[in-house]
Design a protein around this nucleic acid. Structure first.
Length: 436
RNA sequence: GGUCCCGUCGUCUAACGGUUAGGACACCAGGUUUUCAUCCUAGUAACAGGAGUUCGACUCUCCUCGGGACUGCCA
């Protein structure tokens, strides 16, 4: 147990951006690695966007990724009184002053400004970027209270960090420059400053900040598309950090054990959806059978598909798990097993069925399947092997596949027939033959 | 414009100042397979450029070029 305290301080705007959640992941990992505490602060001062629904969405997002926090959530709006008390103190100490000012949108009023040093250097050692310094003259005074009396981000953020006892601030790169201001605020308020670590941004193929225009940018979208939280977590972690050896797929325990904020990269990382997809597949393939089974059943049920009594679920799992890229692919990839109302790929029909002799082949096969004993994958394969006489099973296998499943690819053909059952297999072979 | 930060395969990255510059994704070729996947094997592909320091530079220094962040009564 250490006395390290880190925090994730999002503004609940309804959707959680991947760049933002990566900051949460790094904070969480840092806390877990050091035996410190991971805190949540909801910066809900934007009253228009900070709805209860938005906060709920944020919490669900964190729960989905397994980002548990150690103290009740801290709401920024509940600390406004403290913010303003601190302003009074700064005013009394001469570190702040009131001033008439015109804002960008043309409003004029009296704001409270914080007084920055006018000479010397401002410096700090960033946990990821190293030593940073600036001439004091390059950092001007800045507003801390609006003309309507409400506290501004810089002030609220610092006061809340003091009140929450935050020792390490791990946040986005866009706050680097603010840090020189924040450090002065800590000093002026007589509080020990935290250490800071700034994370580079996640960028798109053009090197610009990754946004919704570049594809899925919010955690909820990845969830909806069937990504596993573990895969997204793992991928985001690797975007700017590595364990120091060649491992890439890491368990949560390994991540906690190996994570080191000082080894996080300074450079911006491009988001590579292909690698995330690969990683998602890895996680699905490595998933325990029971987990896969549960997800399979849930997905089928949600799609209105029900395995009949006696259905060999284990055989299906054997066949399907290794072919599943996304949870959401499951229903589409096996609907034909449970309903006669499934999608048919016209290209596959054209390629495999609309050929001379296929109709006769299918009718012949229907008869053979009708008599096949036992009706198993192994027996079916033996039967077709005999028909092909060592010349390749293609001419039989391809038409059967399209006839019984409506598609050109999928799980092993004979397993497919076994799962379908004799009745359905024979029926579909005949139905396909008649349609030709 | 100003201040600050950054620069290894297409992408994420590894490399005590001494390596044939390694791995992963993607791509490509082959093998396995009835298809699609999986799996196995092989391959293409990078130190932004230029000076300097050094016996020796991806690694240290400087310059150039390129990219980014910030420059609000947003956060």
């Amino acid at each position: 147990m250490s006395n390290i305290r880190v925090r994730f301080a999002p503004s609940p705007t309804g959707k959680v951006h991947i760049g933002n959640i990566r900051a949460a992941i790094y904070n969480w990992l840092y806390a877990r690695h050091t035996g410190g505490r991971f805190l949540l602060r909801i910066e809900d001062t934007d009253l228009e966007r900070s709805t209860p629904e938005a906060i709920q969405a944020l919490l669900e997002c964190m729960q989905w990724l397994g980002l548990d926090y150690d103290e009740p959530a801290f709401y920024q709006t509940r600390n406004v009184k403290r913010h303003l008390e601190c302003v009074d103190r700064l005013l009394a100490d001469g570190r702040a002053y009131k001033m008439e000012k015109t804002s960008r949108d043309g409003k004029t009023g009296e704001v409270v400004m914080f007084r920055m040093p006018k000479e010397g250097t401002l410096a700090f050692d960033d946990l990821v970027k190293g030593h940073l310094e600036k001439k004091a003259e390059d950092v001007p005074d800045f507003a801390i209270v609006r003309s309507d009396g409400s506290p501004i981000f810089h002030l609220a953020n610092v006061v809340d960090d003091i009140d929450q006892g935050v020792t390490h601030v791990i946040r986005g790169d866009d706050h680097v420059e603010n840090t020189f201001k924040h450090l002065e605020l800590f000093k002026a308020l007589g509080a020990p400053p935290p250490r800071y670590g700034h994370l580079s941004m996640i960028v798109n193929a053009q090197g610009k900040p990754y946004s919704k225009r570049d594809g899925a940018a919010f955690v909820g979208e990845f969830r909806a598309q069937g990504y596993l939280p573990e895969a997204l977590f793992n991928y985001l972690l690797l975007l700017g950090w590595n364990p120091g050896d060649e491992r890439e797929v890491l368990s949560r325990d390994e991540m906690v054990e190996l994570f080191d904020i000082e080894k996080v990269h300074v450079t911006a990382a491009k988001f590579d959806i292909k690698k995330l997809q690969w990683m998602n597949g890895e996680y699905i393939r490595r998933a325990p059978r029971e987990k896969y089974r549960a997800e399979l059943l849930a997905r089928l049920e949600a799609a209105g598909l029900v395995p009949p009594p006696g259905f060999n679920l284990d055989l299906l799992i054997d066949q399907l798990q290794v072919r599943t890229k996304f949870w959401s692919d499951i229903p589409g990839n096996c609907a034909y097993l449970f309903t006669d109302d499934y999608e048919v790929d016209p290209k596959a029909v054209e390629k495999r069925l609309r050929k001379d002799g296929v109709k006769e082949t299918l009718l012949d096969l229907a008869g053979r399947f009708e008599r096949l004993e036992p009706f198993t994958a192994a027996a079916g394969e033996a039967m077709v092997k005999e028909l092909s006489q060592g010349g390749g099973m293609g001419p039989w296998v391809h038409p059967i596949r399209v006839a019984v499943s409506g598609r050109g690819e999928g799980i092993g053909l004979f397993e497919m027939c076994e799962l379908l059952g004799r009745e359905r297999t024979v029926y579909r072979l005949r139905r396909a033959a008649e349609s030709l």
